Simulated assay, not measured.
Amino acid sequence: MNSSSIHAPQWPIYLAEARCELLRVLRTPAFVVPSLAFPLVFYLMFGVLLGHGQASVPLLASYTVFGAMAPGLFGFGIGLALDRERGLLTLKRALPAPPAAWLVARVAMAMVFAATIATLLIIAGGLFGGVQLAPMQACALLAVGVFAALPFCAIGLLVGSFAPASAAPAVVNLVYLPMSLLSGLWMPLSVLPPVFSTLAPLWPAWHLGQLARMAVGLQAQGAAWAHVAVPLVIAALCLLLAQRRLRRE
């Protein structure tokens, strides 16, 4: 083996892994259709039709985060659990490829879906909700959507590293749906008992929702740096716990 093969660039491997992961997901309509359709349908229903335009901008922000949660949680939480059960994760470790290639590929997939969902919501808000975002606001909301995928990839990774394949969908939904509600993504926390507003800063989705509100020019609670730091800390903790778990297998 010559020195040129030893020091060959690894980015083509990461790119190929990401391409294969995206193609795999696109061939799974049971994942693609709900991930893209649910946030859009909910926004059109509650933000446009029932909200009569008044809730268009706030719900555009919150449903951008809601839409970014699903690809990471389900892509990692259920996908990883299935890979562990089928032995595919062990096979990937034995392949002559960078150990993190599959991880980077799935994160990239989740970010692509989050960006697509945010784009669809921005277009729907402009066409049907009367939302007029400045170009910088639209770009900022898109960036928040992409960033929001990261902590939920880590949470999904943690779920997928512990939960068996048969239980992973239930565990993911127990994270996805209650956290969306308790973070104020579906309805204002002011309509719930005060304890829910007190506990809201514990959830990464709440912090991301505040960032999304800032992106579209709405009033938000807390500082932007805290809303960035808390999801990153939670993501790092979940990644560390998942890494320890996977090393034992």
Rank of each mutant, 00 (worst) to 15 (best):
G184W: 06
P98C: 08
F196Q: 01
A105Q: 06
M45Q: 11
H7I: 13
M214G: 13
A154M: 06
V146G: 01
F74V: 12
Q219E: 15
L26P: 08
A168R: 06
G145D: 02
V131L: 12
A61V: 10
L192F: 13
M69C: 10
C20L: 15
A168F: 08
A108R: 10
F31Y: 15
F152C: 05
R24C: 10
H52T: 04
I78N: 05
H52W: 07
H52Y: 10
P135A: 12
L192Y: 08
R86T: 11
G87H: 02
A229R: 07
M187W: 14
L232W: 03
F128K: 09
L208I: 09
A124K: 03
L142S: 04
A30T: 13
V25L: 13
N2F: 11
W186Y: 15
A168H: 09
R27V: 03
L199V: 13
L189W: 04
L121V: 00
L182K: 09
P98T: 03
F66V: 01
Q219A: 15
S56L: 05
A114I: 06
Y63S: 04
L202D: 07
P178V: 05
A229E: 11
V159Y: 12
L120W: 01
L121S: 01
G184E: 05
F74G: 00
P96C: 00
L121G: 00
P34A: 00
V57G: 04
M179K: 05
A100N: 08
V216I: 09
H52E: 14
N173C: 06
P39H: 00
Q243S: 14
V233Q: 09
L208S: 02
V107F: 09
L59W: 07
L237Q: 09
V191T: 13
G75I: 00
V107L: 13
R248L: 12
Q10E: 15
G51E: 01
P204H: 11
A16Q: 14
A229W: 10
S62C: 04
T90H: 12
K92V: 09
W225N: 04
F147C: 12
A70C: 06
F46G: 03
S197Q: 15
A220D: 12
L120Q: 05
A215R: 06
A118D: 07
I155G: 02
S56D: 05
A55S: 14
L142R: 06
A154W: 03
F196R: 03
L22F: 14
A220R: 11
A235T: 00
A170D: 06
A105S: 12
Q132K: 14
V146W: 00
W203G: 11
C20N: 14
P188A: 07
S3Q: 14
L89C: 03
F196N: 01
L73F: 07
Y14C: 05
V191F: 10
P12F: 06
A205C: 10
W186N: 14
A212N: 03
G77H: 12
V171T: 05
L91K: 07
V233A: 15
Q132F: 11
T119K: 09
T119V: 10
Q54A: 15
R24A: 14
L218I: 04
A235Y: 00
A143T: 05
A55F: 13
F152T: 05
T28G: 01
K92D: 10
P99Q: 13
V65P: 09
S62Y: 06
L127S: 05
P98G: 07
M109S: 12
I117Y: 02
L60G: 02
G129A: 07
M111Y: 03
A94R: 04
H207P: 09
V131E: 11
A105H: 04
G130W: 13
